[in-house]
Amino acid sequence: MGTEILPWVFTTGWASGINAYLVVLILGVAERFFHVAGVPAALGRTDVMVVAGILFLLEMFADKIPYLDSAWDTVHTVIRPLVGATIGYLIGHESSSLAAAFGAATGGISALAAHLVKAGTRAAVNTSPEPASNVLVSTGEDVTVAGVVSLAFLNPWVAASIALLILVTGAFLVLYLFKRLRRVRSRYADWGARHGLTSEPPSDATRIPARPPAPETEPLEQRRRPE
């Protein structure tokens, strides 16, 4: 694949950080039925595709249920980077051992970065009262992953650019959401304290000072005056 190794491993790594099983399934179908050049042959094996398909169906449902999606993300903190690194290694292995090591590192790091952005976004989305936002976000992630990975078959550099843009935008979005959430919680705590709904620890100005220790009683012999 030559110079196309970098955009390929970055794109597949980023996509693996969002939905690793969908990436494996798309690459497997591309290799098995469309014989796309550069896709590792191991991903087109029947057993790999069956397992990836089953796990993708499980993730498709778990990823749309509030708080269960965050638990699922926690379990996959290690799995998704490993899948991204493995795909990167297999892609680079077609060229040389050095390219395989480079592909594994790039795929693993990009997958970890995308996973952290996704997990942070889900943690913020779960604070919303309605479950519709989880369904919309999850569906949008799956469609985006499928579209960007499919675009990589036609133009890897364009797909990698889109993946990088989404990753950077998602990171800034997560920071914005958490700052806004912290601001809302602070306002709610102030409102609750004014209306007696929440209790706040007393400040230094209103804290009751500690009672000084009682003076020690002198022995009776020391208090007697000499005659």
Rank of each mutant, 00 (worst) to 15 (best):
E31R: 13
E31D: 13
E31F: 08
R32D: 07
F33L: 11
F33C: 08
F33D: 11
F33M: 12
F34C: 11
F34S: 11
H35S: 08
H35W: 06
H35F: 10
H35V: 15
V36A: 13
V36C: 06
V36K: 08
A37G: 11
V39A: 09
V39R: 01
V39P: 10
V39D: 09
P40K: 04
P40M: 06
P40W: 07
A41K: 00
A41R: 04
A41V: 13
A42P: 03
A42K: 00
L43P: 08
L43T: 12
G44D: 05
G44K: 02
D47N: 10
V48R: 00
V48E: 03
V48W: 02
V48T: 14
M49N: 10
V50L: 14
V50H: 03
V51N: 00
G53C: 10
G53M: 04
I54W: 03
I54S: 13
L55G: 09
L55Q: 12
L57N: 07
L57K: 02
L57I: 14
L58K: 01
E59C: 09
M60R: 03
F61K: 04
A62M: 10
D63R: 02
D63E: 11
D63L: 02
I65T: 15
I65W: 03
P66D: 07
Y67T: 13
Y67K: 08
Y67C: 04
Y67S: 14
Y67F: 13
L68F: 12
L68G: 06
D69E: 13
S70L: 06
S70Q: 09
D73R: 04
T74N: 14
T74H: 03
T74D: 05
T74I: 15
T74G: 15
V75Y: 07
H76E: 11
H76F: 07
I79N: 06
I79Q: 11
R80E: 11
R80G: 12
R80D: 10
P81W: 02
L82V: 15
L82P: 03
V83K: 00
V83I: 15
G84D: 07
G84Y: 02
A85D: 07
A85M: 05
A85F: 03
T86H: 01
I87T: 05
G88I: 02
G88T: 13
G88K: 01
G88E: 03
Y89S: 12
L90H: 00
I91N: 08
G92I: 15
G92L: 08
S95Y: 00
S95H: 07
S96K: 02
S96I: 11
S96F: 10
S97V: 15
L98H: 10
L98F: 14
L98C: 05
A99F: 11
A99I: 12
A100E: 00
A100L: 08
A100Q: 06
A100K: 01
A100P: 05
A100D: 04
A100I: 12
A101F: 10
A101H: 07
A101P: 00
F102A: 15
F102P: 01
G103T: 13
A104K: 02
A104Y: 02
A105W: 06
A105L: 12
T106E: 02
G107A: 05
G107S: 01
G107C: 00
G107N: 00
G108A: 14
G108M: 03
S110P: 02
S110L: 03
S110C: 10
A111Y: 01
L112N: 03
L112C: 09
L112W: 05
A113I: 11
A113K: 02
